[in-house]
Design a binder for these strands. Structure first.
Length: 886
DNA sequence: GCACGGTCG
DNA sequence: CAAAACGACCGTGCT
């Protein structure tokens, strides 16, 4: 028999909010009401096993128009933002649960419930109405039970007509009479003064209804008689007000309310997102079908995994054409130095574990050829790392066609480090033991026995196959196929090539530079100790703070969480007070160069090649940018001359070759001009004007020749601010001016660049509506805090909404340029090699006879990478080292 | 492992 | 009023 659970959405979430202790997820969004609601919901599903569920909401976005729920507090009050931010979360969760929700403009949840129960009545269906509002008892009947929440929402009490009679001695329909007499202050139902529940019940037991009572007021006496006669109209009206409307023009049919059990693949990720761990555990009790087994590991026998030896190698060779998933387990953060722990080659029917030594040996030749064949497509997790690790073990890897890690990154670039087990859980697949549990963590890392290892890797491969089909669907529905298959996948191979190639570092010159720094540092240290009249660790901000502020009594400009701030900004301000400060600033600068760029870089040079091989990570930056590690070659000094010298040690790897570098000019502002479609900004770039000068002219309303250095500097800061998601405070800090003045600049900017203002407004609105923002090429970034009540979180999300499409589109563009450049080098049969990417810059090493070609080809390719409504501009230069390529 | 500070785009 | 620019990595000190 059908059973419908009908929930008063607003009422329950409101009660849950006040009943539950405050609860926030790790990013500070309140979730307590959603938690309470969900807890109750899961319990009801378990206990009542409904076939249909509908959650009714008041129409309108955040305003409570309905009154019934507010008897809790006794007075009307505005919905706190901590609660209103939970409505979208709740609705999203219901959707993930496959539970119908309904709201209709101009009607309250009560009205919808009244109407649905009326229809159910007519069709002989069973309904449980879940509400905190006693008024609803009027709906009780043989078919309709009212589940009244008590103590918030954790307990419910079920009312049929008998229970109503037991409790009040009234029939359900008399509940309206009761309200008519006693009223309800929170609902603005006046009732009759002086009549409370007791009197009202007594009168109703005697007369049955408001009408009947009013017809017999002559039988009453004293004050009561007077009150009732005076307020007879109020009593009638109050009864009317308390009567639930039951004729809403519904568009939702019975079929829409159907509930066929929670589906783990959507419910699990939704609960995980909310960080409801205890509910996740309960979920297995109420999910249907497949999900029942989802908590279990796949039994080892079912994996059908074979360990490959010289003897049975032919079996693997025979199955090669069936292998559709590959997993290479590596150990070590740096893939250029990673060990290979194990390799699983997996087909839907059987899986093969092949030891790396066997693969390297003569007997493994055929399999190694399979790995190297770019025409054979390989699917797996982090194939970029796989490629590098295998490369340094002498195995060529080619033909990557689907990388699960990369797909997971595109589907949610902010979710950090999504391991295979995390993804299996996300998609409700059979669970995997954690790597941490199999191998141990950090220093305790240990490769388990071959049996254990083999089974673990086979489980991973089996999970990958299923994850891939889920991701294929998700990529397609997010319209990310082009981004994935035509951009990130091909780029992954190009990055690996660049990294394997590496860039030569002139070790002796670097050591010599270190020597120079050393001598200067020694002098500075002595001078600092002398002035301080004591020796201390200058590298310790704590000790330095004590010297500057306690001992020397300099004014405290800024504090950190743990004590005095001693950063460069503070020291600059302190410089006029004391000579020591200049020395400390110089010390800091040199110490940084020495430790990070001389010593750090020296450690990363491979003795065999004299090169550094960075590792570009494609799945870290939330905006779509690359990051660089071991060493980071994206933050080599350039702004100050002392540091810039470091660039002299980056040299071509072949004699007579050159380093050639090309960088995009103002790519982010050009992107902004395109996506905001701002006429003024577009015009500036169409005429290739100096954008900061042009901004100064427009903002300050002066001619080009009237723009002084200071105006240009301010305009430049404003342009940066615009790209970062402007705030008057941020600008005021940057320019060291009062906030009000910064606010004026911004206002003037927006007056002129109205298209930019429109873009900023629109993108934030879009983010609030969709929960994410996109780049030109459909790269997404979710912004869960965009509707947060916490000002900080919300503001941050808003700035991110403004910045990400800009920074992200710029990242898209240079990635396209790299792919096209890689192709161009092949097409032109050039020996030149692409070595580095630094966000808006590409660095090559080029033989002399290709210089002329490359000087044209590189900027042209970069400029054509993605046609926009404004031209892209790339500037090229070259020299005998990276320093000279300026 | 976290806090701080500094380097880049 | 609050609190603040966007995105990264890495070395040192200290718990």
């Amino acid at each position: 028999m059908d059973k419908l659970i009908l929930i008063d959405g607003n009422g329950i979430i409101y009660r849950a909010f006040f009943a539950m202790p405050p609860l926030t997820n790790s990013s500070g969004v309140h979730t307590n009401a959603v938690y309470g609601f969900t807890n109750m919901l899961l319990r009801l599903i378990e206990e009542e096993k409904p076939t249909h569920i509908l959650v009714a909401f008041d129409a309108g976005k955040v305003t409570f128009r309905h009154e019934g729920y507010q008897d809790y507090k006794g007075t009307r009050q505005k919905t706190p933002p901590e609660l209103s931010e939970q409505f979208p979360l709740m609705k999203e969760l219901l959707q993930a649960f496959g539970i119908a929700q309904y709201e209709l403009e101009g009607y309250e949840a009560d009205d919808i419930i009244g109407t649905v129960t009326k229809l159910a009545e007519q069709e002989n269906r069973q309904v449980i109405v879940v509400t905190g509002d006693k008024d609803m008892l009027q709906l009780a009947s043989d078919h309709i039970k009212i589940a009244l929440t008590r103590k918030g929402v954790t307990e419910i009490e079920m009312y049929g007509p008998e229970q109503v009679m037991e409790r009040y001695g009234l029939t359900p329909s008399q509940i309206t009479d009761l309200k008519g007499l006693m009223g309800d202050t929170s609902d603005n139902i006046p009732g009759v003064p002086g009549v409370g529940e007791k009197t009202a019940l007594k009168l109703l037991h005697q007369y049955g209804s408001v009408e009947e009572l009013l017809a017999h007021t002559d039988e009453l006496k004293g004050k009561l008689k007077e009150n009732i006669e005076t307020h007879a109209e109020s009593a009638r009206m109050s009864k009317q007000l308390a009567t639930i409307y039951r004729d809403v023009p519904l568009t939702q049919t019975w079929e829409h309310m159907k509930f066929s059990g929670l589906q783990a693949d959507t419910a699990v990720p939704a609960l995980r997102k909310l960080e409801f761990k205890s509910l996740l555990e309960r979920l297995s009790l109420v999910t249907s079908g497949e999900a029942e087994v989802s908590e279990q590991d796949i039994p080892a026998e079912e994996l059908n995994v074979k360990i490959v030896t010289e003897q049975n190698m032919h079996e693997l060779e025979g199955a090669l054409s069936q292998i559709d998933v590959l997993h290479v387990e590596t150990h070590g953060d740096n893939p250029h130095q990673a060990s290979i722990v194990g390799i699983i080659m997996s087909s839907p029917e059987e899986q093969f574990y092949i030891p790396i030594e066997l693969l390297k040996s003569d007997s493994g030749r055929k399999v190694a050829e399979w790995f190297a064949d770019s025409k054979i497509s390989k699917r797996g997790y982090d194939l970029h790392r796989t490629d590098l690790a295998l490369h340094w073990h002498g195995i060529t890897f080619a033909g990557a066609s689907f990388d699960v890690q990369l797909a997971a990154y595109l589907l949610d670039p902010t979710e950090a480090n999504q391991e295979i087990s995390d993804l299996a859980r996300k998609y409700g697949l059979p669970s995997l033991p954690l790597d941490e549990d199999v191998f141990g963590k950090g220093a305790k890392y240990k490769v388990p026995s071959e049996d254990v290892l083999t089974v673990h890797l086979a489980r991973k491969a089996a999970a990958l196959r299923k994850i891939i089909s889920k991701q294929e669907e998700e990529l397609r529905s997010n319209e990310m196929n082009r981004l994935f298959y035509d951009m990130e996948m091909p780029l992954s191979r190009i990055l690996a090539d660049m990294e394997k190639q590496g860039i030569s570092v002139h070790k002796d010159d670097l050591r010599a530079l270190g020597k120079e720094f050393e001598e200067q540092l020694d002098k500075l240290v002595q001078q600092i100790y002398e002035i301080a009249e004591t020796e201390f660790n200058i590298n310790s901000p704590k000790q330095l703070g004590e010297i500057l502020f306690d001992k020397l009594g300099l004014p405290v400009i800024k504090k950190t969480k743990t004590g005095y701030s001693t950063d460069a900004e503070v020291l600059e301000k302190l410089a006029p007070y004391h000579d020591i400060v200049q020395f400390i600033l110089q010390y800091r600068q040199l110490a940084k160069l020495q430790s990070t760029y001389v010593e750090g870089l020296l450690k990363e040079i491979r003795p065999e090649t004299g090169k550094v091989h960075t590792y570009y990570r494609q799945t870290i930056a939330a905006t779509g940018r690359l990051s660089s590690q071991f060493p980071n070659l994206q933050n080599i000094p350039i702004r100050l001359e002392e540091g810039r010298k470091i660039r002299k040690v980056f040299v071509p790897s072949e004699p007579g070759w050159y380093i050639l570098a090309a960088d995009y000019s103002q790519i982010e502002l050009r992107v902004l001009a395109h996506i905001s479609d701002d006429e003024r900004l577009k015009e500036a770039f169409l005429h290739d004007m100096d954008i900061h000068t042009k901004t100064a002219m427009d903002v300050f309303g002066v001619k080009a020749e009237e723009v002084d250095a200071n105006m240009r500097r301010s305009a430049k800061a404003v342009n940066f601010g615009i790209v970062y998601g402007i705030s008057d405070y941020g600008l005021s800090q940057n320019l060291n001016i009062p906030r009000k003045e910064a606010a004026r600049f911004i206002e003037q900017y927006f007056e002129v660049f109205q298209g930019v203002r429109r873009y900023m407004d629109e993108i934030v609105k879009e983010a609030k509506r969709d929960g994410y923002v996109k780049t030109l090429l459909e790269r997404r970034r979710y912004l869960p805090d965009i509707n947060a009540s916490n000002f900080n979180l919300r503001s941050f999300a808003e700035r991110t909404a403004m910045n990400t499409p800009i920074q992200g589109t710029a990242a898209d563009i240079i990635k396209l340029a790299m792919i096209q450049m890689d192709q161009a080098l092949q097409d032109h049969r050039l020996k030149s090699r692409m070595l580095l990417q630094v966000h808006d810059e590409l660095v090559f090493e080029v033989p002399e006879d290709e210089l002329e070609t490359m000087k044209k080809l590189v900027p042209e390719t970069m400029e054509k990478a993605l046609p926009l409504s404004v031209p892209l501009k790339a500037e090229v230069s070259y020299g005998v080292n990276w320093y000279e390529a300026k």
